[in-house]
């Protein structure tokens, strides 16, 4: 199944190696991928997701701000009356996983995930939606 996916860097983290690699992996898997660039606020990401009518939002976070910013993206998307699943990828310690799930994050991809696992997990989230 081919989907429209927004991948985004939220906050001040400039590490963009991961997001670019994942964007290409998802594109090669047949998805349409939109990347909005660095230094986005949760509001900007939510607005782009709704305007672009995407099926899924992927956030790449390596600065430790995921607990603050990822839930805000979910909140902002819901505030716009949309229900778009949000997936987080990056450096996320295990002890944060439960809280992120509770805040409405659909899935978390941690370091070492292979291309196959990434594509499969995104497919699972899209199917569940």
């Amino acid at each position: 199944m081919s989907a429209r996916i927004l991948v985004a860097k939220v906050g001040l983290d400039g590490h963009d190696r991961g997001i670019k690699v994942v964007a290409r992996i998802l594109r090669d898997a047949g998805h349409e991928v939109i990347y909005t660039g660095l230094f986005q606020t949760p509001e900007m990401v939510a607005a782009s997701a709704v305007d672009e009518d995407v099926d899924l939002v992927g956030l790449s976070m390596l600065s430790g701000a995921h607990m603050t910013l990822a839930p805000l993206v979910v909140e902002q998307i819901r505030a716009r009356g949309a229900d778009i699943p949000v997936v987080v990828g990056g450096i996320v310690p295990d002890h944060d996983l439960a809280e992120l799930k509770a805040a409405g994050i659909a899935a978390v991809l941690t370091p070492g995930a292979t291309a196959e696992q990434i594509v499969a997990q995104i497919a699972a989230v899209l199917d569940a939606g």
Partner: peptide, 22 residues
Amino acid sequence: DMPTLLGLDSDHPMSLGEVGRC
């Protein structure tokens, strides 16, 4: 930390969640 690297004070709205993190 990220706000300092980008020349932002800790009370800037964009600094939320990033202060002292990395």
